Amino acid sequence: MTYKTLIGINPRGVITFVSDLWAGSISDKQLTKKCGILDLLEEGDAIMADKGFLIKDLTTPRGIEVIIPPFKTKYKRLTKREVEETRRIANLRIHIERAIERVKNFRILQGNVPITLAGQTSKIWKLCSKLSNCQPPLVTDR
């Protein structure tokens, strides 16, 4: 069985939200609804997500912006503005990937987890997330 989680990271690279681990078969939309993050966001907030993370119908009524890279299809080329927007988003997403990598580097949940620990995996994941925040900042002021 694989797990899926939703992580919130602030602009400085600090993990500010960690959902429980869910079965890997849960959809992104269901995970977003069930994990409680929408209740913590306020009108005017913005969240960054992958292209396939289609949750605008959950966020727009709450006044929350979803920032995703523009879609390229085989019928439509990206405009110069869309290419620049994709590049800008990709540069910011690097920090997200680095924060997630820090949590994974604890390697506690790597490989097979004994069934006896299945009930504790969310707690372990959250603890590793919190401990990763004790490391030097990912994003520094320049």
Rank of each mutant, 00 (worst) to 15 (best):
I67L: 15
D141L: 10
F53H: 03
L109F: 04
K130T: 15
Q120D: 10
P69M: 02
P114Q: 01
L131H: 10
K76N: 08
P137L: 08
I100T: 09
F17Y: 09
F106N: 04
R12H: 12
I108G: 03
P136Q: 03
K33D: 10
P114L: 00
G44P: 05
D45W: 02
Q30G: 07
Y75Q: 09
Q110S: 15
K74W: 01
P61L: 04
G24S: 05
E82R: 08
I26F: 04
L38E: 11
L109K: 09
I37D: 08
I7W: 06
A46R: 14
I94V: 14
T79F: 01
K104A: 04
I9W: 07
D50T: 06
I55K: 06
L109V: 07
Q30P: 08
S129E: 07
I108E: 05
E65V: 09
I7R: 01
S19N: 07
T140P: 05
I9C: 10
L109S: 04
L54S: 11
Y3V: 13
I15M: 10
T59G: 08
R98G: 08
L6W: 01
K56A: 14
G36H: 11
I37R: 01
I15T: 13
R107P: 03
M1A: 11
I7C: 11
G36L: 02
I115Q: 14
K56V: 12
P136I: 03
T73G: 00
I94N: 04
E84A: 09
D28C: 03
F53W: 09
K4C: 13
V139A: 05
N91Y: 12
K72C: 00
D50L: 02
K126F: 05
D57K: 06
V18S: 12
H95K: 07
L131S: 00
L40P: 05
G44R: 12
D39K: 06
R102C: 03
G24D: 00
I9M: 04
K33W: 00
W125C: 06
E65C: 13
A49F: 00
K72V: 00
I96D: 06
T140F: 10
H95W: 04
E82P: 09
